Simulated assay, not measured.
Amino acid sequence: MVRRYKYPKFLSRPRGYVVLLLLSFLCTMYSMLHFIYYKPGRANALLYRYQAMQETVIDYVYYGGIRRQKWQLKQGLASTAAQTIPYLPLNYNYSNFDVCPEKFPEMKGQIYVNMTEIPLSEVNTNFSHIIQHGGSWEPHDCIAAWNVAFLIPFRNRYEHLPILFRHLLPMLIKQRIKFSIFVINQEGDDLFNRALLLNIGFVEAMKIDHSFDCFVFHDVDHIPENDRNYYGCTGMPCLFAEQLDIHGYRLEYEDFFGGVNGVTTQQFKNVNGFSNQFWGWGGEDDDFYTRIRHYGYNVSRPPNNYGKYQSIVNHHTQERQYLGRFSRLKHSVEQNFIDGLNSLHYNKPTIRHYPLFTNISLKLRPDG
């Protein structure tokens, strides 16, 4: 005789199915919220893939794919036209006493992006005879039009740094930009504060060289795809990373100002830098955009689809979200005057000079 298992009363039909469904729903929601909080970057990328897929389905169902074909054709024509825009001819003559132009024949446009991991020592070997120890370089065949400081907010992305340098350094040399590279490293396990790191990087970089014309804030996992995306100070404030591969090469939203952007030194001082209060992932770039627009600055973007970037997805240690960013963003304008460069407090950082960059390291804590 087969004995049937007797379910507990709370799982008896039909109420038992309702309880099981409710438990399953709660577990699913918890998993999703946990993923979004601890992996916000990946969650964001998945959301954009879903939206792109949804748009494609709607387009083919209701419009027969015509809208997407027109968009792809427009992108293709723009890219093709961009590659044929006349740059300086190969026989163009200029002297050591002329200011470097912003276009050179070496700037071919689309570049090959190689995401293969490479040790930093190998990149050092390839460029240390060209780059001054500490990460500075300037052209010798003309006078650099701009002196640019690159600030890279950093924590535990050691595999990404050599990949970025492998692509960025040849590009800057082709563009004849005088530059210095600073890696602003947050030590410890406390919540990451990208904006505070950039404020500190600005202050410390100006102590080393007060003649910087502008600053470029460059995420370590953003790799440029086009060497005609000029990193000089022309047209700042500027959003360099307009189109990212994980976002389908579309502008994330109209007011987006993250990833790779730049401002002049005076503009950064005028807007009081970044807010120091964004502990965790997200929000600080939106707050910075609000400050910029509040002061009447218009943000420019690279022409001809030059602002395309690829994101490094391997070894992508994701920082936790800043859950209070939306409420703080509501008061960006009011906080502008009391939160930023004028309220900056931090312990003395450790500064070390490496072959390709200057490292500025320190610990940051939300409680000061």
Rank of each mutant, 00 (worst) to 15 (best):
F288A: 04
S311G: 00
R301M: 08
G235F: 07
Y309I: 10
D245F: 07
F257C: 10
N226Q: 10
R325P: 00
I351C: 03
K308S: 10
I292A: 01
F256R: 05
E284M: 03
N272F: 04
P355I: 11
D339M: 06
V333P: 01
Q243A: 12
F274E: 12
N314P: 00
F240A: 05
N336E: 05
S300D: 05
W279G: 08
S275V: 00
E242D: 13
N298H: 09
P349H: 09
I338Q: 11
G258F: 07
F268N: 05
N276W: 08
Q321R: 10
I312A: 03
D339W: 08
G273P: 14
N314F: 12
R228W: 13
C238S: 12
L244N: 13
S275C: 15
F326M: 10
F274T: 05
R328L: 11
E319Y: 07
I223G: 06
D227N: 15
R320F: 04
G283P: 02
P302R: 09
R325I: 00
E334R: 06
P224S: 13
S327Y: 06
G307V: 08
G258P: 04
G259W: 12
E284R: 01
R301V: 14
A241M: 07
S332R: 03
F256D: 11
N276L: 08
K269I: 14
T234L: 13
H315L: 03
E334N: 12
R293A: 09
Y253E: 09
I312G: 02
Y253M: 04
G340W: 02
F337L: 05
Y249N: 14
H247M: 13
T317P: 00
R352W: 01
F257H: 13
R301P: 02
R301E: 11
G262V: 05
T234G: 11
M236L: 14
K269D: 11
E319L: 04
Y306T: 02
R325H: 03
R293G: 00
S275T: 10
N270I: 15
G262H: 10
N270Q: 15
G340L: 09
V260F: 10
E225K: 15
D227K: 11
D287H: 14
G262D: 14
I351Y: 05
N276T: 13
E319V: 01
L239Q: 13
Y354S: 08
V271S: 08
P349E: 12
R328C: 00
F268A: 09
I223S: 07
I223W: 11
Q277V: 07
T317Q: 12
E319G: 07
S327W: 08
